[in-house]
């Protein structure tokens, strides 16, 4: 096995990590926003529900949540219901987990906007929706870019946890080489994660610069 064919094989596995990363973002970014509105709701039961959800999800390991999503449904339905596809189970667990973290980032960003911004909009006769989209939204985005990039970069590496429910990700491929007595591909996987995170870092820095045209 030469270096390039091993690289290509690992890349085959890394596609699964990229897929899990992409779908998790697609699902968790909007779901997190919904949960954040719930946890800021003046309606107490909804607020309590959302905050309890966030507490449980953030308070337990992602790995454990993966096991729960994959193994608990068949256990309690005595095999009647199970998520057949391991990747689907991983996607569900990841979206739930990351939505909880994202919701707190959104909440921090939204609650950090001074009340005066809303009031200025009101006295200028603007509607609530206009104030949100025209005044507040960009300010929230600027505030959350840094914590979001942090969390999204963590997600890149967390995708490897899916390996524990036997999703065929890059670590599974690397492990196959190890079993055959070839250890270095295991360490080589780090380069894939590093490269991916590097690209994301450049992207986030670009976004931060784009939003740097004003302060405050």
């Amino acid at each position: 096995m030469d270096f390039w064919s091993i690289t290509l094989q690992l890349f085959e596995g890394f596609k699964a990590n990229c897929y899990l990363f992409g779908i998790t973002l697609l699902g968790a970014l909007p779901l997190g926003l919904i949960i954040s509105f719930g946890s800021m709701s003046p309606f107490f039961p909804l607020k309590a529900l959302c905050r309890t959800f966030v507490w449980i999800i953030r308070g337990t390991p992602l790995l454990l949540q993966l096991f729960v999503v994959y193994y608990i449904p068949p256990m309690i339905t005595e095999g009647a219901f199970r998520i057949e596809d391991r990747m689907t189970a991983a996607v569900i667990a990841f979206i739930i987990n990351y939505a909880a973290y994202f919701s707190e980032i959104y909440r921090g960003g939204i609650e950090g906007i001074p009340k005066g911004q809303y009031e200025a909009g009101y006295v200028l006769g603007m509607k609530k929706s206009q104030i949100f989209f025209k005044v507040v939204l960009l300010q929230v985005i600027k505030r959350i870019v840094a914590p979001m990039s942090n969390e999204i970069i963590t997600l890149v590496k967390d995708t490897s946890l899916a390996n524990f429910i036997l999703v065929e990700d890059i670590l599974k491929y690397a492990n196959d080489f190890r079993v055959q007595g070839l250890i270095w591909p295991v360490f080589y996987t780090g380069a894939f994660f590093l490269l991916f995170c590097g690209l994301l870092t450049i992207l986030f820095r670009f976004v931060e610069r784009k939003l740097d045209f004003y302060k405050g």
Partner: peptide, 24 residues
């Protein structure tokens, strides 16, 4: 009602202590 209040607000302008300009 929200809509009524919004319409009526336009009779008044308000300048705040903290300016509250839109920074972006």
């Amino acid at each position: 009602k929200d809509n009524e209040i919004r319409k009526n607000r336009l009779h008044f302008g308000m300048v705040f202590q903290q300016f509250n300009l839109f920074p972006q």
